[in-house]
């Protein structure tokens, strides 16, 4: 099928090229292995994926972090727990005394060999970010697999029992909402209120913040859009919702993404598209150079409409 043309292209829409303004967040993708195969996953993660960050690249990441006071370490995947060296890597990151975020699918924390992460996260005061697309069981299960909703509730209960999401504990539990179909997320504040009330009333569970993340037209979600003939309408909705105010705070301006093979990207989405940093900035962790990376020109494409639509979208939800 021919790719429908996106008009105007993201580059045409921009008044000037997007440039980074420092690196506050060092995001590391430990690999594409996951025990789920969610239908919206831009990574196309799953149990059969073999891509995993090598120990050597992990050591290079730690060295970069030791040399540069980047305040936030953001660990993602796949689900990071399935990387065999993750416990070691987490301990090493914790020793650096930075803010650490782990993006988990949540349900992995109930699986036998991975249950120790519940205590490990609490011990190192890791901020846990759990994918939780909908408060409706049927919608979540359709998106993430049969039985996932009830396991998620159980996982959040176990995190709550350790203090996560509880007022005053300082243990942060944030949830991520992704639309369960070919539409954009609603306002974060409205959805957060709805989640808070529904999860408390139905299950007695609590959390800190809800991040609303727009599904990117990449990976499995792109396949879904095309298969259901929603691609054109979805892209039109993204283009029509373009909000220049989001350009101030798009995550690529303040973060750097490290791929499983050590390559550097402006974001996790560019990573999935194989678009490494460019315009003179080094494209591999081996050649890390803070000065050139902190001021690099961002590599953009039409998928960037996903982060700039409406109230915007980032790994921490809305941005405008």
């Amino acid at each position: 099928m021919d790719e429908p043309r996106i008009h105007p292209s993201f580059e045409q829409k921009m008044a000037a090229p997007l440039k980074a303004e420092g690196i506050d967040t060092f995001q590391i993708n430990l690999g594409y292995r996951c025990n789920l195969e969610c239908r919206h996953c831009h990574v196309e993660a799953g149990p059969n994926r073999r891509e995993l960050l090598s120990r050597a690249v992990m050591e290079m990441c730690l060295q970069v972090l030791q040399c540069h006071p980047i305040p936030t370490i953001d660990i993602t995947g796949g689900t990071p727990e399935m990387h065999p060296d993750f416990p070691w890597f987490l301990e090493e990151c914790a020793a650096l005394d930075r803010r650490i975020l782990v993006r988990t699918n949540g349900v992995i924390l109930l699986e036998g060999p991975y249950t120790p992460f519940l205590n490990l996260y609490a011990k190192h005061r890791v901020e846990v970010v759990v994918s939780f697309p909908h408060v409706d069981m049927k919608m979540t299960n359709r998106q993430r697999g049969e039985g996932v909703y009830s396991r998620l509730i159980e996982a959040v209960r176990m995190l709550n029992a350790r203090g996560y999401g509880q007022p005053g504990s300082g243990l942060i539990l944030n949830l991520v909402h992704n639309p369960s179909g070919a539409y954009l997320p609603g306002l974060q504040n409205s959805l957060e209120n709805h989640y808070r009330q529904a999860l408390k009333e139905k299950h007695g569970i609590v959390f800190n913040q809800l991040f609303c993340i727009t599904n990117m037209p990449i990976g499995r979600y792109l396949t879904f859009l095309k298969k259901t003939e929603n691609y054109e309408e979805y892209m039109t909705a993204l283009v029509n919702a373009f909000n220049p105010a989001t350009l101030e705070s798009v995550m690529c301006k303040y973060s750097l993404s490290v791929g499983w093979d050590g390559k550097l990207y402006d974001c996790d989405f560019n990573q999935m598209l194989g678009m490494t940093v460019n315009h003179g900035a080094p494209e591999h962790i081996e050649m890390f150079d803070l000065n050139s990376l902190a001021n690099r020109r961002i590599v953009t494409g039409n998928h960037c409409y996903g982060c700039t639509a409406g109230a915007g979208s980032s790994c921490r939800g809305e941005i405008a």
Partner: peptide, 10 residues
Amino acid sequence: TNQCLSLGVS
């Protein structure tokens, strides 16, 4: 319909 879906309405 889109707005309701976006706001998590079942």
